[in-house]
Design a protein around this nucleic acid. Structure first.
Lengths: 214, 214
DNA sequence: CTCCCAACCGACCGATCGGTCGGATCTACT
DNA sequence: AGTAGATCCGACCGATCGGTCGGTTGGGAG
């Protein structure tokens, strides 16, 4: 175990995670070679295997780190309290800001959902990741249920709305060149992020049609 | 050139496309080997290379076939006419039904957007795919603009809303096991599709909050 | 000084990758 | 019968894959 790593330059392990995160996001699990990761960090391939026993373990560690970051931010946001609508808007806003601040996040996470084997392993990292994702979905579901119970949200199927909304929030930041083409500007440009947030919040509040009620 | 393929069993080329579509959707471009495709069809690897010059060309052909199918359905839907709100609802409904009827579509297309090199080639298939995707986005953007101009849709930024909405519609059908876990049932089960459609349409109409207007 | 151990490396392993090549088989047309 | 073209195959190619192994550093503890 390393002594403390006192706020100075990051350890090799962290630098490996950083490089792997970017590569996995851009090319997917199968598209990245351990040699590539090692070169990106400036180490030999066997040195990477010294820190992570296998490619799958490295991938799990990358996912787990992202998911725990998101979960932290999310529970902190929800803990601030307020009416359901306030909490929802804060949550959506902060989630989008987080995804915008880390361009790898949305892409990597959506990609990981698409792997059919998923995080099928049973290592501690996989378990941590599963727990984090469970916590994230659970707390969002609870918020929606509360809002519906108190009548401030339309009555609807929580799981279905959850699935739809997750896609709405995460997709733009994972869409890469496609998103850039649609917007005409970089999706991660602060002005675009701000606009995306505004439109998403209004979509949640009003929908697309002027003056609700059929 | 084959004579006619008169509605009987599909040609080897089509069977290769079918198998490759499923595999690329489940494991991504880099995660699929040509041997795997060949085995799935029941051919030798070199026979697959007889029909498609390279793996990249096969991938492009798969994408192009899907995109042209979607574009066809979409322009036919829009051509039926009606008020903007009617056209929008019909479009969203048909799009979701199409994605639901072909479980590979959403996953493969979202995955293809995540590849950083995208469909960078300049073969005829790539061009057809690019044209199809352009047509799809263009026609949806036009519909939104018309609705806003006539006041039935809230005034908002068309490109941003487009990006958000595409994610909302496509993600559930790409989310695989994750979606199944959230819903508790298979995403492609007809009852779930119906519910997903209903919730998506209501989200578009009313948003999440009861009785619009802040 | 010695011993230890984490960190690191180059060389190597069997397997698989995308792709090529020469030839076999079949059908259709002359 | 002869031939052209489409389809298919087994064997093979160099490169790269994830992963292993033996060994070399270098700093901290005894």
């Amino acid at each position: 175990m390393t002594v403390a790593t006192l706020a100075s330059e990051p350890s090799s392990r962290d630098r490996i995670l950083d490089v792997a995160e970017g590569l996995f996001a851009r090319r997917g699990y199968a598209g990245v070679g351990m040699k590539e990761v090692a070169d990106g960090v400036g180490l030999g391939k066997s040195s990477v295997f010294h820190h992570f026993a296998s490619k799958a373990e490295l991938y799990s560690a990358v996912c787990a780190r992202i998911l725990s970051t998101i979960e932290d931010r999310l529970v902190r946001s929800l803990a601030e309290g307020g009416a359901p609508q306030v909490r929802l808007e804060r949550l959506v806003g902060e989630l989008m800001e987080l995804l915008a601040a880390h361009p790898s996040y949305a892409r990597l996470l959506l990609r990981s959902l698409f792997e059919d084997d998923d995080l099928a392993g049973d290592g501690p990292e996989e378990q941590a990741a599963q727990r984090a994702i469970g916590g994230i979905m659970e707390s969002m579901a609870t918020l929606l249920k509360e809002g519906m119970a108190s009548g401030v949200f339309r009555a609807s199927s929580v799981p279905h709305v959850l699935l739809l909304t997750v896609g709405q929030i995460a997709f733009p930041f994972a869409s890469g060149e496609f998103g850039q083409e649609v917007l005409g500007k970089d999706v991660f440009d602060p002005a675009q992020v701000k606009r995306l947030k505004k439109e998403a919040l209004e979509l949640v509040q009003f929908g697309l049609v002027e003056q609700g009620r059929a």
